[in-house]
Amino acid sequence: MILTEDSIAKIKAKAVRYPRKKSAILPAWTVAYRQIGHVDEAIYKEISKVIGVPMVEIAEAATFYTMFPKKPRGKYLLQVCNNISCALRGSDSMITHLENKLDIKLGETTDDNQFSLIAVECLGACATAPMVQVNMEYHENLDATKLDKLIDDLKAKKD
């Protein structure tokens, strides 16, 4: 099993609250995603077992939603909102800035597996644009200085 006992317990605790077991699909991914950082076939299979829903239903729903990466990615997933409000505040060039700084293109992962960079749709931080979501965390009202510091801090972080 890839899912830890703790994750399985969490999934089961959520699942029992719903009137139908299929409803536990999204909560189960959320737990899996927090533990693993992505969801893929192996996880679908495990979730299917844990909540008792056919694997195909898990996979169908999983591929419908775009928030969970479907394959392993860098330790820090940089998700730059590139929708209209952020774009008006320079998110296009923020992406370029990050590409240069990390020496990767959009959609790629750094060689040391630390950073993956993707553009995403509106994250509901329109009045604090531009922004980037790092894994689950929001970083808003960014400018070049703040962004550089954010990346540098992450790089320096050891754990």
């Binding site: 409803s23 991914w29 959320t30 928030m67």
Partner: peptide, 12 residues
């Protein structure tokens, strides 16, 4: 009255 916090997965 019971309540469930249900979370989405990235879909407008």
């Amino acid at each position: 009255l019971d309540m469930i916090v249900h979370t989405g997965g990235g879909a407008y």
